[in-house]
Every structure is written in structure tokens, then in C-alpha cells.
Computed example of a mutant assay.
Amino acid sequence: MDLVAEANPEALELSKLLFDNMHKVSIEEVAMYISGEEDEKGFLFDDEFKLDIFKAVFADVDSHQSGGYDYRLAEIEETAIKN
């Protein structure tokens, strides 16, 4: 079974945005935020709505900075890999 082939475009875009923005926000933080919003609204969001929320709250907001760990490689590690 090819899971990527079964994913809808919104889920794929959200996954890419989560990866590209991991220096600003963790997956856990996004999941907790969306879960809280779903609880407040009383229904589960579809992937398109989750993508819209992520773009509005996390991805398109340059000032958002998670207090969590930055998973990107440090400058020193990147240099060591190149050499």
C-alpha cells in the first residue's frame, strides 16, 4: 500500500509545511492547538481546514517561535557534513 498516493493534496501540503517550519513549531504544538480548536467547536476538522489553520496561525506568521527544540542541523554540523 502506497500511503503517499492515498493522501489528499491538503494533507501533503500540511506535511510539507510542518517539515519546512519545524524550526518555528513542533508537530505536537500544532496537534494540541488543532485538538483544542476542535474541542471548542465541537467537531473534527478536515485536512483542508487544518491546513488553513496552520497557514494562518503558524506558517504565515514570522513572529511565531515555539519554545521547543529546533530540529534543524546546527551550522557546525552542516559544515562538517560538507567536508
Rank of each mutant, 00 (worst) to 15 (best):
L14Q: 05
V57F: 14
A80E: 00
E29M: 08
I81L: 04
D52T: 11
E28A: 00
D70Y: 00
G42E: 09
G42L: 09
K82M: 00
V25M: 07
V61T: 05
Y69W: 14
G68P: 14
E38I: 08
N21C: 08
V25G: 04
A31H: 15
A11L: 02
K82I: 08
Q65G: 08
K55P: 08
N21Q: 12
G42I: 11
G42Q: 10
A31P: 15
E6Q: 07
I76T: 09
D62F: 02
F49V: 10
R72M: 01
I53H: 03
K82Y: 09
E75Q: 15
V4K: 14
G68N: 11
N21P: 02
A74T: 15
L44E: 05
M32I: 08
L14T: 08
K41S: 03
F19A: 10
M32D: 11
I27Y: 05
F45E: 02
L51C: 03
F45N: 04
F49Y: 12
A59H: 13
L18F: 01
A56C: 06
E10D: 04
E10F: 11
Q65S: 08
V57I: 14
S35D: 10
M1W: 07
A11Y: 01
E37D: 02
F54G: 02
V30A: 06
G42P: 10
L17D: 01
F54S: 03
L51H: 10
F49N: 01
E29V: 11
Q65W: 06
Y69E: 00
E40P: 00
V57T: 13
G42C: 07
F19R: 15
G68E: 10
M22P: 07
S15G: 00
V57W: 13
H64C: 03
F58V: 09
G67R: 07
P9F: 10
E48L: 09
L73Y: 14
E78Y: 12
V61F: 07
G36A: 14
E37N: 06
I27F: 00
D70G: 00
Y71M: 06
N21S: 08
V30M: 03
Y33H: 13
D46L: 12
A80G: 01
S66C: 03
L3I: 06
D46V: 11
D20C: 05
I27N: 04
A31E: 11
K24F: 09
A56V: 03
F58L: 07
D2Q: 13
E13T: 04
H64Q: 02
K16W: 10
K41M: 00
I76K: 13
A80Q: 01
L44F: 07
K82P: 04
Y71K: 12
E29P: 08
L17N: 08
